Simulated assay, not measured.
Amino acid sequence: MSSILKRIKLVADHEGMSVSAFEATIGASKGVFTRALTNGTDIQSKWLISLMENYPDYSAEWLLRGEGEMLKPKPIVVEGSETYLNAELDGVSNAVIHALQQVVSTQNVTIKSQEKIIFFMERQLSVYESELDTLKKK
Rank of each mutant, 00 (worst) to 15 (best):
M1P: 03
S2I: 09
S3I: 05
S3W: 12
S3L: 15
S3P: 01
I4N: 01
L5N: 07
I8A: 07
K9N: 09
K9F: 04
L10G: 00
L10I: 13
A12N: 03
D13Y: 01
H14Y: 09
H14D: 15
E15F: 02
E15M: 07
M17I: 05
M17K: 05
S20L: 09
S20C: 02
S20G: 02
T25P: 00
A28M: 04
A28V: 04
K30L: 10
G31S: 09
V32G: 00
V32S: 07
V32Y: 01
V32P: 00
F33P: 03
F33T: 05
T34Y: 06
R35Y: 09
A36M: 03
A36S: 06
L37M: 12
T38L: 06
T38P: 00
N39G: 00
G40W: 06
G40K: 02
T41V: 07
I43A: 01
Q44V: 02
Q44R: 14
S45V: 15
K46F: 04
W47L: 06
L48S: 06
L48T: 11
I49T: 14
S50R: 13
S50Q: 14
M52C: 11
E53T: 10
N54Q: 14
N54L: 01
Y55R: 15
P56W: 11
P56K: 03
D57I: 10
Y58N: 03
A60P: 12
W62E: 06
W62R: 05
L63R: 03
L64I: 12
R65H: 14
G66L: 09
E67D: 13
G68C: 07
G68F: 07
E69Y: 01
E69H: 03
M70V: 08
M70Y: 08
K72R: 14
P73C: 01
P73G: 01
P75T: 08
I76P: 00
V77Y: 00
V77G: 00
E79K: 10
G80M: 09
G80E: 12
E82H: 03
T83D: 09
T83Y: 14
Y84A: 05
N86Q: 08
A87G: 01
E88A: 10
E88W: 03
L89R: 08
L89K: 06
D90K: 09
V92I: 13
N94Y: 06
N94W: 08
V96E: 14
V96C: 05
I97N: 02
H98A: 15
H98M: 10
L100T: 13
L100G: 07
Q101N: 14
Q102G: 03
T106H: 04
T106Q: 10
Q107S: 02
Q107L: 15
N108R: 12
N108F: 05
T110K: 14
I111V: 11
S113Q: 15
S113L: 10
I118Y: 04
I118F: 06
I118K: 10
I118D: 03
I118R: 10
F120R: 15
F120H: 13
F120M: 11
F120A: 15
M121D: 12
R123G: 08
R123I: 06
L125R: 14
L125I: 14
S126C: 06
S126T: 13
S130K: 10
S130H: 08
E131G: 01
D133M: 09
T134Y: 07
T134A: 06
L135F: 07
K136I: 13
K137I: 09
K138G: 08
